[in-house]
Every structure is written in C-alpha cells, then in structure tokens.
Amino acid sequence: MARSEFDVSQEIEYIRRVQKGDGEAFGLLVEKYQQRIFSILFHLVRRRDEVEDLAQEVFFKAFRAIRSYNFQSSFATWLSRIAVNHCYDYLRKVRASRLSYYSEMTEESAHELERKAESPPPQGLDQGEKLALRDFVGRLLERAPEDDRIILSLKELEDYSVEEIADMLKLKTSTVKVRLHRARKRMLEDLGRWRQEGK
C-alpha cells in the first residue's frame, strides 16, 4: 500500500495528530490530496507554471487553519474549499493587473478564432483543432468574472456534482444551480458578442 493510501479512520487519526502539531502526519495528508489540489488549481487559474507555488500556499494555509477543522465536512472538501478561496484571491489580483484580452490579441489571431467559433458544432476534431478550441474556450473562461469562472471550472472541468460544489462553496444546491445557469448564459452571450465585435 502506498504511503498516501489510507482509510477514513486513519485519516481522522492523522488529522488529529496534525491538530496537535505533527508535521509528519500532515505530510501524509499532503501526499494523499496533492493531486486533487493541483487539479483544482490548474483548472481554476490555468497557469501551469504557478500551480505548485499556489498548492504550497494552499497547504500552508490548511496547516495553519487545521485546528478549526471540525470534521463536519470531509477533509477533501475542506481542503478544496481552501484551494478555491485561494484561487478567488489569486484571480482578483491577476485581474487587477491584466490587460484586456482584446488588446493582447493580434488581428490575425482574432480572425482565426472567430472563424473557428463560427464553424459547425465541432465533432471528430483533430489534435490541432482540439488545441485551438481549448485555447479559445480557455481564453473565454479567463474573461469571465471570477464567480462564473470558478463555478464553471468546478462543474465542467473538474466534474464535481452540484452537491459537492455547494458543499465546497458553502452554498445551497439551488443557489449553485442558479449560478451555473447564469454563468453559462453569460458565457454564451459573451461568445456571441465576441463574434459580433469581430465582424
């Protein structure tokens, strides 16, 4: 059995040890959850080169706050909540210092993306087309407000259920559903606007 594979009762014991200041037990928890946190951070911030630094900060925060963990939600959810909140802070900071997407694009690449957006529903895409589509939607997601971006990423990219997202964001499931619906609608409108602006 790998060091990072352990059952719930062992996990509870490790958490209690960490709450008493045991760093080694925390290392075991980090090993178990690091990939989950890396995945959330990557899909939410989409900066491959910054994921590890952000993950360190998330685990650091978790270690400092672990005494407040009261076992009401699962440890995975609690940790993911810290990661999501950290992403909110990060995205707000980045947004404040970022140029608008349009100003970063050359005219040629804007036309190229526009042409792709107007193509029929993409099916059987080759690798190059998939990359272009990924780039395009990734950039569209980056333009979205933080709330939309985070909720869409958790649902569409991380594939969490509405209930899991509600637990993570401390919201009602009905609120998550409404927010998801609005986020999708805004993104579709944004895509439509983009296409119109390009014409």
């Binding site: 690091q34 990939q35 890396f38 995945s39 951070l41 990557f42 899909h43 491959r48 994921v51 590890e52 993950a55 957006a117 193509s119 529903p121 993409p122 099916q123 895409l125 998939k130 990359l131 589509l133 990924r134 395009f136 939607v137 990734g138 569209l140 997601l141 869409l152 569409e156 990219l157 991380e158 594939d159 999708r184 993104m187 579709l188 895509l191 439509g192």
Partner: peptide, 20 residues
C-alpha cells in the same frame, strides 16, 4: 454556440494538470 462551448469545456477538461 452552446455546443461549441461544451466541446471546448470537454477539450479543456482533458488537459492533464501538472504533477507535484
């Protein structure tokens, strides 16, 4: 546009996150 976005999300989700 909705279908296009769904395909885009799908492509994004397939992207492998970096390993620790």
């Amino acid at each position: 546009r909705a279908l296009f976005l769904q395909a885009g999300f799908h492509a994004l989700a397939e992207e492998t996150p970096p390993q620790a």
